[in-house]
Design a protein around this nucleic acid. Structure first.
Length: 849
RNA sequence: GCCGAAGUGGCGGAACUGGCAGACGCGCGCGACUCAAAAUCGCGUUCCCUCGGGAUUGUGGGUUCGAGUCCCACCUUCGGCACCA
């Protein structure tokens, strides 16, 4: 772009509109597949290790093999692709890999509903999705493709399981599952329907059943997972993860039941211990049976029946009326030796803390509601600052704040600042409790009682117990020949021979684990498999790892904020501690996109009939238009409704680019003509050329900045503005100039990441060398922005009254003089002298009276 | 109930660090081309008005020479969820 803007060079034919050459129609259906084939044949987007260039690992969340790619995938991946392409043109060695998350429940549902084997269904879907992904024209690094259901992939998923097992991070314990007693099968949360909690298939009320299942010790990493300092991740995701981990600091305290069983509780408010007037256990707490007296047994049984079918979410609903029942048992509060009644209630969860609480109704709202409902004692032990002493009889709600301890035995009078610490010291000195940290985060349950997943590579030997399948026997292959019963247990359990094996240690008969792994296992490490997807010796090639990792940018839906994105961080840290990976985090930068809704503003669904099929849109407009529209029409992080009307603006724009570029191409090929054109270049054209130059560089600046910042809608508007600038330039007679042609080329280069096919086609027709996607990104020249005259806004009392054209470097004194010359300004001053003048260089002058 | 995000023309959305609100489009109106229509191109388009202006970024306050942007209180919509002891 180094040229003298004021030297307008005219050549060839004069530019009368009617002299414009006729040009070919824009036919994306012909152009797009042609270039897609060429790029793939050339391996244009296959990135290899190149130490001479900085790398960039651009990752977009791998799609689930649900059937078709929907427009939401395009919305997630298309703009990501544009940014990856931009970074390539900037000189980075970019890999933008793709793969498939292929295990999971929908494949089994399809098998049961339609009698298709999950494998057949899944791989047919993958074929179709590959075709659709190719039609996007994204710079996919196809040789890196990985499919999580391939044995060459899940072999290593199993290997990672065994590594975790070997390092004590995988263990088995009893845990409840939702169970349909009629179908005799485990149900996923989404298969339990409605408030009534009925089985999706047979509408039987679901029950809880305890099964022995595998867990990963993610809680070991809870504190480290709270540290986001090395990450450029969106604030809402960091907040969600922080809340999910839910670290709270307090104390563990041991109460003692009448029969001498310790009942441990966790509290964040040990300073309220003297106000504990009862205890509440979760209904499933192991001591409930022992505490319940004969007299209360029937009532407790009835309550258990009623609560244990509910989901945690139902139990925890805030607006729900408190419920509970007295066990008849009591426990001793260790700080004062007082006997308090022990209740059970569904608002205490077995899965949080110890499953038991000390209830302090005066200072906890839930306990307060419970106490008032069941007539239990309310005893204030905290005096809030600056308020009168609380009176239990007249309180209408709990007072949860900190304050001076009162009625608290030896600690009475302890001020708020020291209350918690002093109580913990007291507990520790008496040996009845200690300071403790509690997390909401639970260990990751990975067992699934399903077929379509990676089998858990563990063998049960009567002699040796849980035995790891040796490395050389991996993968534990999923058998294809299984019976598809519409109901019942996992086919692996029912398979006649599969589960029968021998113990790797003693060689005697043993049984395989018949559960499979949570598919979040696969997605926790797939980004590593992309590094060397066909490596048969190791999960990934360390030299590839050293070059490419960590992932530089990761894009995907915000719905993965807590599950997938915590699991993958945990996985990485656990592998790091085993010496398998390096660095503390797998993904440096994360950005989330929103969702595309149907034209009616509702979530797309087949039953609503508002689904937008990308194949149909590509057939109608071409992939370039669909990509550009998805970038232009929405804030990427927000999403919004699909609009058949709004896409028309993008259709027109792409056609305009096509026309302008082809006109330029025709002129370039025309023989040099009338030299008179040069002589005719007047001062008006020089100014127009200067303007076009400025607008071209404005576009370079904005497109670069906005692609970097994931602000895709303004990328397109900047490109449209440059297109408009070219139209204006053409009208001003610049079409024959070198400057015009350079601007056309710049427009194509800037548009290349957005609309890769049409720009490649036009680039070729302009006679430029293949490929536009291997060209350097245009550089911004600040000189182009320099202007002699600027519009200065003149305000009176902060209101805009006039705009005056002034020299760019105008001083305050001069600006004031010029402003006072304005009739409009003088009228609004009404003869008064400005009391204050605010001058903002290059922008405005504000006269205050 | 809690957490998070967002409220700007008829619509989607712009607006740097507090400095011209409404960029870029859609839609609509007018015009050119056409026998006509479509397509295309050009012009206009926040609202009100006594044509001087006035009002305007969910609502009400505040800070400031100046607020879509900062502060306080509130309302609405969307998303998520965990009564977290």
């Amino acid at each position: 772009m180094a040229r003298k803007p004021d030297t307008v060079q005219k050549s060839s034919v004069p530019t009368k509109p009617e002299a414009r050459p006729t040009i070919d129609a824009y036919r994306p259906a012909e152009i797009e597949p042609r270039w897609q084939r060429r790029w793939e044949a050339d391996g244009l987007y296959h990135a290899r290790i190149d130490p001479s260039r900085p790398k960039f690992y651009f990752l977009t969340m791998l799609p689930y093999t649900s059937g078709d790619l929907h427009i939401g995938h395009w919305f997630a991946m298309g703009p990501s692709d544009a940014r990856a392409r931009f970074l390539r043109m900037r000189g980075l060695n970019v890999t933008f890999p793709i793969g498939f998350d292929a295990f999971g429940l929908p494949a089994e549902n399809a098998a049961i509903e339609r009698g298709i084997h999950p494998k057949t269904w899944t791989y047919a879907n993958i074929e179709n999705m590959r075709r659709q992904l190719r039609s996007m024209g994204a710079c996919w690094d196809w040789p890196r493709e990985a499919v999580s259901a391939d044995p060459e992939f899940y072999r290593w998923t199993q290997w990672f399981f065994l590594k975790l097992f070997e390092h004590g991070l995988a263990y088995k314990k009893m845990a409840p599952v939702d169970w349909c007693p009629k179908d005799n099968t485990t149900l996923a949360r989404e298969q339990v329907i409605g408030e009534e909690r009925l089985c999706e298939r047979c509408k039987t009320p679901v029950i809880k059943k305890n099964l022995e299942q595998w867990f990963f010790r993610i809680t070991k990493y809870a504190d480290e997972l709270l540290d986001f300092s090395a990450l450029d991740w969106p604030e809402p995701v960091r907040v969600a993860q922080t809340n999910w981990i839910g670290r709270s600091q307090g104390a563990r305290v041991r109460f003692l039941s009448a029969s001498g069983d310790p009942i441990e509780v966790f509290t964040t408010r040990p300073d309220t211990l003297w106000g504990a007037t009862f205890m509440v256990l979760a209904p499933e707490h192991p001591l409930v049976g022992r505490l319940t007296t004969a007299q209360q047994r029937a009532a407790v049984q009835a309550y258990l029946q009623q609560t244990l079918r509910q989901s945690d979410i139902q139990r925890e609903a805030a607006d729900k009326e408190k419920s509970g029942v007295f066990t008849g048992g009591t426990a001793v509060n260790p700080v004062n030796g007082e006997r308090v009644p022990v209740w059970i209630a569904d608002y205490v969860l077995m899965s949080y803390g110890t499953g038991a609480i000390m209830a302090v109704p005066a200072h906890d709202q839930r306990d307060f509601q419970f106490a008032r409902k069941f007539g239990l004692e309310v005893r204030p032990v905290i005096e809030p600052p600056g308020a009168a002493q609380l009176d239990a009889a007249t309180m209408t709600e709990a007072v949860p704040g900190y304050g001076t301890m009162v009625d608290s035995g030896p600690l009475s009078g302890t001020p708020a600042e020291r209350a918690v610490a002093a109580t913990i010291e007291f507990l520790e000195s008496k040996g009845i409790g200690e300071g403790a940290v509690n997390y909401r985060l639970r260990d990751w349950l990975i067992s699934r009682q399903r077929y379509w997943g990676a089998p858990i590579p563990i063998v049960y030997c009567p002699e040796h117990g849980q035995v790891a399948v040796p490395d050389d026997q991996l993968p534990v292959l999923l058998p294809d020949d299984v019976e598809w019963l519409p109901t019942g247990e996992s086919p692996l359990k029912l398979h006649p021979t599969w589960r029968k094996t021998t113990c790797p240690i003693c060689g005697r008969p043993a049984e395989r684990d018949t559960d499979t792994m949570d598919t979040f296992m696969c997605s926790s490490w797939y980004h590593l498999r992309y590094l060397s997807p066909h490596d048969a010796q190791e999960p990934f090639d360390p030299s590839e790892y050293d070059y490419w990792m960590p992932v530089d940018t990761y894009t995907g839906g915000a719905e993965h904020a807590t599950m997938h994105l915590i699991y993958t961080r945990f996985f990485h840290k656990a592998l790091r501690d085993m010496g398998i990976t390096e660095g503390h985090e797998p993904m440096r930068q994360l950005r989330n996109q929103g969702h595309i809704l149907g034209p009616d503003g509702q979530r797309m669904s087949k039953s609503r009939g508002n689904v937008i099929d990308p194949d149909e849109q590509v057939g109608r407009y071409g992939a370039d238009v669909v990509r550009a529209y998805l970038m232009f029409g929405y804030r990427w992080a927000e999403g919004g409704s699909w609009s058949d009307e709004n896409i028309q603006g993008v259709v027109r724009w792409v056609h305009r680019v096509w026309t302008i570029a082809l006109e330029a191409a025709h002129r370039a090929l025309a023989p040099a003509g009338d030299p008179a054109g040069v002589a005719n270049a007047g001062p008006g054209e020089a100014a127009a050329a200067r303007t076009l130059w400025r607008r071209t560089h404005q576009a370079i600046r904005q497109v670069s900045k906005d692609l970097e910042a994931f602000e895709f809608n303004t990328v397109i508007s900047a490109l449209m503005e440059l297109t408009n600038a070219l139209s204006d330039g053409r009208e001003a007679g610049l079409a024959e100039t070198d400057g015009f042609r350079e601007s056309v080329e710049t427009l194509l280069l800037l548009t290349a990441p957005v609309a890769p096919h049409v720009t490649e086609e036009l680039w070729a027709r302009l006679g430029k060398p293949y490929s536009i996607h291997q060209q350097a990104w245009p550089s911004f020249d600040p000189q182009a922005m320099e202007q002699e005259a600027i519009t200065l806004v003149v305000q009176v009392n902060g209101k805009v009254r006039d705009r005056i054209l002034v020299a760019a470097g105008i001083t305050e004194v001069e600006a004031r003089r010029r402003a006072l010359e304005s009739d409009v300004v003088r009228r609004h001053l009404g003869g008064a002298e400005p009391r204050q003048v605010v001058f903002v260089e290059g922008r405005l002058i504000n006269l205050v009276i």
